[in-house]
């Protein structure tokens, strides 16, 4: 199972690199969307590994809240770009 987690961390590094090197704000938002999903899935996997119910609950809440925040941010950026 450790091997799986390390592969997931490697996959997480790709959008981090992308967010660092790309200059367009929407490409950065895409990278953030990817990171938000990946981190919460990783928390979920870790909670299952350790058999810890509460970390799992937190992972599910983060999954939905992170995405909601992302949508709010996308709408605000769009609105601000228009004016």
């Amino acid at each position: 199972m450790n091997f799986i987690l390390i592969a997931m961390i490697l996959a997480l590094l790709i959008p981090i690199y992308e967010a660092w090197q790309d200059n367009s704000i929407w490409q950065k938002m895409l990278a953030f969307a990817s990171i938000a999903t990946k981190t919460s899935i990783m928390i979920l996997v870790i909670s299952v590994l350790r058999d810890d119910w509460w970390i799992g609950v937190v992972a599910v809440i983060i999954l939905s809240v992170g995405n909601a925040g992302l949508m709010l941010l996308a709408h605000l950026i769009k609105r601000f770009n228009e004016v």
Partner: peptide, 25 residues
């Protein structure tokens, strides 16, 4: 988690597509 993932990520894809195409890049 599966239900949340399916619904939120899909809606997020729609919102991102809508915002990035409508707001100019």
């Amino acid at each position: 988690a599966i239900i949340t993932l399916a619904i939120w990520n899909t809606v997020l894809g729609y919102v991102l597509a809508y915002c990035s195409s409508g707001g100019g890049e």
